[in-house]
Design a protein around this nucleic acid. Structure first.
Lengths: 283, 283
DNA sequence: CTTGTTCAAG
DNA sequence: CTTGAACAAG
């Protein structure tokens, strides 16, 4: 028996809004550890990884591991029937060919339950290597969304160039070219911060970031990579999940676009860069 | 000569918005008593009854009864030309082949008048029996709208089951099933309220309802009926007219969905239930 | 968080 | 052209 109750149902709604356009069908893996999903988009260019840890739920019970194959569009339809301030409970028995979504409003005078048939989806469970990235950029998720949206009105791809002090987004198209450069917010603070980070671990770093640190760059090696804006714009639907987005880049590796979900986990999107030689093939 | 002036023109606009998709042409009956309409929708499945009492108008004059046959789409087009805070005056002389809509903005520095040709529409004036209903549900019109909209993303019909303590809305479709249960808000208050209603008439009852009474059920007999969501969703366009909606149900009778228009009257929609044996025919 | 408005998609 | 989604304001 699997049962997971999340007080703030809007989180689950937002998560599905952010991935349902990318992936049509996917297996949710329910374990004692949490509620997780990994799936490639239908064109096999991008990958989404969701983790909602069991500790982040209001109530969580998972007697044995369950795989729930769902059509994300249908799941999203049902979640849309929940109010943003509803509590959402997901349930499946071990036989597990049906999932139940239960919505309760805060006053508990309206209770809805929605049943959806589960599907058999065979997927190769893609192990994602835990790489060290050459560049890590943390910035306002709103700003990142704005940049991706703005640039897609000019071109189809964006080249992201990360240096020690800035991240530059570049595109070009029929009507012209565009460069958007975001400087790392404060050089002095950053150096100090880095020292502290090494001493005290990630925590100081995070605290600093939330204190008006707009762009935060952690660089081993300058990186320049090109991506399809179409996918980045899709990823940006997760913007409302988190104030900040983290981009991780390494030469010839997929970018990782991560939105943290407070106290619960994350949504991560992976997108392979365009290889220059392949540009002709992609168009 | 007929002349009716309503200060809050938005009411008339909303009324037309709520019925124009249901009924294409209809006769408005103008009498000393008020401005009324009864018409079946084009598929003869539902019926709309509108009453705007003369006492609710800012100015009302009706020397002799007039029947004004109008195309509601055209009437609605004209009313859309009125601002929401405009005063609307309707006029017809006794010859009566033309109706005039006059719009005045509050500052009285903009006055519009629109003339529309009337039509001859022959309708059997359907007498609607004043039935005692087995179940009466009063609830937030917003919530009712939300429920009907949500359920139509799952199925085409809704089964409404009213019991002493709750009203349950159920549907099912290809992707699954859904139940939404609204509990009668507070049992203790309800009983007290009923007594007061008998003593002091309807007024106390209404006052109570607006004080956070979400769902109010008056039951002679538990009722379960099934309706086409398409029509209910159409009825719900009247939601902005009134905070609360009243549903009246009896076995094998059309449901009455009523929106009160404060100090003026009501819009009522009637919809015949689906009979089980007919389900096959309907698909 | 609700409402109104505006924009895009079917 | 109609309807749903995104945005902004209260």
């Amino acid at each position: 028996m699997f049962e997971a109750r999340i007080l703030q149902g809007s989180i689950l709604k937002k998560v599905l809004e952010s991935i349902k356009d990318l992936v049509t069908d996917a297996n949710f893996e329910c374990t004692a550890n949490g509620f997780a999903l990994q799936a490639m988009d239908s064109s096999h260019v991008s990958l989404v990884a969701l983790m909602l840890r069991s500790t982040g739920f209001d109530h969580y019970r998972c007697d044995r591991d369950v795989t729930m194959g769902m059509n994300l569009l249908n799941m999203s339809k049902m979640l849309k029937c929940a109010d943003n301030d509803d509590t959402i409970t997901m349930k499946a028995d071990d036989a597990g060919d049906v999932v139940t979504f239960m919505f309760e409003n805060p006053k508990a005078d309206k209770i809805s339950d929605f049943q959806m048939k589960l599907m058999d989806i065979d997927t190769e469970h893609l192990g994602i290597p835990d790489t060290e990235y050459e560049a890590t950029v943390k910035m306002s998720s709103n700003e990142f969304q704005r940049i991706c949206r703005d640039l897609s009105s000019i071109g189809d791809t964006v080249t992201i160039a990360v240096t020690k002090d800035s991240v530059k987004f570049t595109t070009s198209g029929d009507i012209g070219e565009a460069n958007i450069t975001c400087r790392r917010t404060s050089d002095g603070d950053m150096k100090e911060e880095k020292v502290k980070t090494e001493e005290d671990g990630e925590k100081v770093h995070n605290t600093k970031s939330s204190e008006g640190q707009n762009v935060d760059i952690d660089l081993q090696e300058p990186v320049t990579l090109t991506f399809a804006l179409r996918y980045l714009n899709s990823f940006c639907k997760a913007t409302s999940l988190c104030e900040n987005v983290r981009l991780q880049l390494s030469k010839e590796l997929p970018v990782v676009v991560q939105y943290l979900i407070e106290d619960m986990g994350y949504v991560r999107f992976y997108l392979a860069p365009k290889i220059e030689e392949e540009d002709a093939d992609e168009s």
